[in-house]
């Protein structure tokens, strides 16, 4: 516990030293992210740091964690920020239920709290008597955009499969639901839906086998780009250039694939800007603006070739 607090403090001080020396009257914003092992959050951190430098009217203290489910160090980070007396906390919760209580304490301490990326659980918020807006992308809507692109390209009745993320993860569930929305709307024929745990190699294996079982597959919806890369490689090995694939996240590695048509489309959630936008909203509230309510949707965009 002590060690973790020390680690969080150390992380904060390292980040502090890289930001510009803060004047006393500048508001302090604590940014709590999920795993910095994830490309998405790494980009987000870079975006937030650039934003802090550009705006220059606030001081950024950022903490990340070692893995996606390490909510205990997130709770510690919230406690540290309360002790340090920051003005605002901007948080991407690792657990949508466990984070409600510590954030409630922060709000009671007069700190402006902005919840972004993953929404806190409605039931848990109600139980704790917390009212907190959510700033974030619509994963389900984004997945539907990708699914729509596939549905439009293939037409009614086309046979498709879904490669899912980690079972039980909120964004994986939302993306699967979004794909299923597209399946329903375009009257596609969903043959199979399986997880590959977000991983390239596993997606490659799982999809190669699905293709053997269903050689008449026409389209694939992968819940992230790492898995889409695995699918594309499986199609190349099988010599099938007739099957269309969509992914999610628009990571740099798939952009050449979109360019040459191996990937039909992906979805950009502008992770880099998401933390920065949330910080803007926090500063607006701090400056006396109205409290946020409900779901503030952040932009999502389909990235497709010509």
């Amino acid at each position: 516990m002590k060690l973790m607090k020390f680690a969080a403090a150390a992380a904060t001080s390292i980040l502090l030293s890289t930001s510009i020396a803060a004047a006393d009257d500048k508001p302090v914003v604590g940014l709590i992210m999920k795993s910095l092992a994830n490309e998405f959050f790494q980009n987000m951190l870079a975006g937030a740091e650039a934003h802090a430098e550009k705006r220059g009217d606030y001081e950024l203290r950022a903490v990340g964690m070692q893995n996606e489910t390490d909510f205990e160090s997130q709770i510690n980070a919230v406690e540290n920020f309360i002790t340090q007396g920051v003005d605002a906390i901007v948080v991407a919760p690792a657990d949508s239920k466990a984070m409600v209580r510590p954030l409630k304490r922060a709000m009671e301490a007069g700190i402006v709290v902005i919840n972004f990326d993953v929404a806190l659980d409605e039931g848990a918020k109600e139980q704790q008597g917390v009212e907190l807006a959510f700033v974030g992308p619509d994963n389900r809507g984004g997945a539907k955009l990708a699914g729509d692109a596939l549905g439009t390209a293939l037409g009614e009745g086309a046979k498709v499969v879904i490669i899912e993320g980690n079972p039980g993860a909120d964004n994986a569930t939302q993306r699967r639901l979004g794909f299923e929305d597209a399946v329903a709307e375009h009257k596609l024929n969903l043959l199979d839906s399986r997880t590959a745990h977000w991983e390239t190699e596993e997606a490659n294996q799982v999809f190669a086998t699905m293709l053997t079982a269903n050689p008449d597959i026409q389209g694939v919806m992968a819940a992230n780009d790492s898995m889409a890369i695995g699918v594309v490689k499986a199609l190349e090995s099988a010599g099938r250039s007739d099957i269309k694939v969509v992914g999610f996240d628009a990571i740099p590695a798939v952009l050449p694939m979109i360019e040459d048509g191996r990937l039909l489309a992906s979805v950009d959630q502008f992770g880099q800007e998401m933390a920065a936008n949330s910080i803007d909203l926090a500063l607006d509230v701090l400056a006396g603006g109205p409290q946020l309510e409900g779901w503030v949707k952040t932009p999502i965009e389909l990235v497709a070739g010509k």
Partner: peptide, 15 residues
């Protein structure tokens, strides 16, 4: 072999 097969190398490979 992983790299040759998938044409990427990912720091989260092999979990």
């Amino acid at each position: 072999i992983y790299m040759a097969r998938l044409n990427i190398s990912s720091p989260i490979a092999g979990i």
